[in-house]
Amino acid sequence: MIVGIAKLLGAASILQNKFKTIKEWVYAGFAINFIGAFALGAFVGDGVSLLIPPLVALVTMFTPYILWKKLAANVKNS
């Protein structure tokens, strides 16, 4: 339950734009979580069908992260 609440708070902090450092740490925490889910599944011998969802979630998470960083760089340069 605590981890679920932390994930909800993390999702809420990704949606805000005031505290950029917290947003960076949330992205890092989610990345560690998804990589850990993939590694744990690989270590216990899960099939490929169970290893794909953490990778899809990781790519899905990095898409807005990269776009956010590019937008921040464009705003800073203009």
Rank of each mutant, 00 (worst) to 15 (best):
M1E: 09
M1S: 10
M1R: 08
I2A: 12
I2T: 14
I2H: 09
I2N: 09
V3A: 00
V3F: 03
V3I: 09
V3N: 02
G4L: 03
I5F: 09
K7S: 03
K7C: 00
L9E: 01
L9A: 05
L9Y: 14
G10S: 01
S13Q: 14
I14M: 03
L15H: 11
N17Q: 13
K18S: 11
K18M: 08
K18T: 12
K18W: 09
F19R: 13
K20D: 01
I22L: 14
I22P: 01
K23N: 02
K23C: 02
E24F: 05
W25P: 00
V26Q: 02
V26H: 08
V26M: 01
V26I: 15
Y27L: 06
Y27E: 03
Y27C: 04
A28Y: 13
A28I: 12
G29V: 02
G29Y: 02
F30Q: 03
F30W: 10
I32T: 13
I32R: 14
I32W: 10
I32N: 07
N33H: 14
N33V: 05
F34D: 09
I35V: 15
I35C: 09
G36I: 06
G36A: 11
A37V: 09
A37P: 03
A37M: 10
F38A: 00
F38L: 03
F38C: 01
F38G: 00
A39H: 06
G41F: 08
G41E: 04
A42R: 15
A42H: 08
V44Q: 04
V44R: 14
G45R: 11
G45I: 06
D46L: 15
D46V: 06
G47E: 04
G47D: 02
V48Y: 11
V48L: 12
S49H: 14
S49Q: 13
S49R: 13
S49C: 03
S49A: 04
L50S: 15
L50M: 13
L51S: 03
I52C: 00
P53L: 01
P53C: 02
P54L: 05
P54K: 11
P54S: 03
L55A: 08
L55F: 07
L55E: 03
V56F: 05
V56C: 02
V56E: 01
A57I: 06
A57C: 01
A57R: 05
L58C: 07
L58H: 06
L58T: 07
V59G: 12
T60Y: 07
T60D: 06
M61F: 12
F62Y: 14
F62C: 06
T63M: 10
I66L: 00
L67D: 04
W68P: 00
W68Y: 11
K69P: 00
A72E: 15
A72F: 09
A73M: 10
N74Y: 11
K76S: 12
K76V: 07
S78C: 08
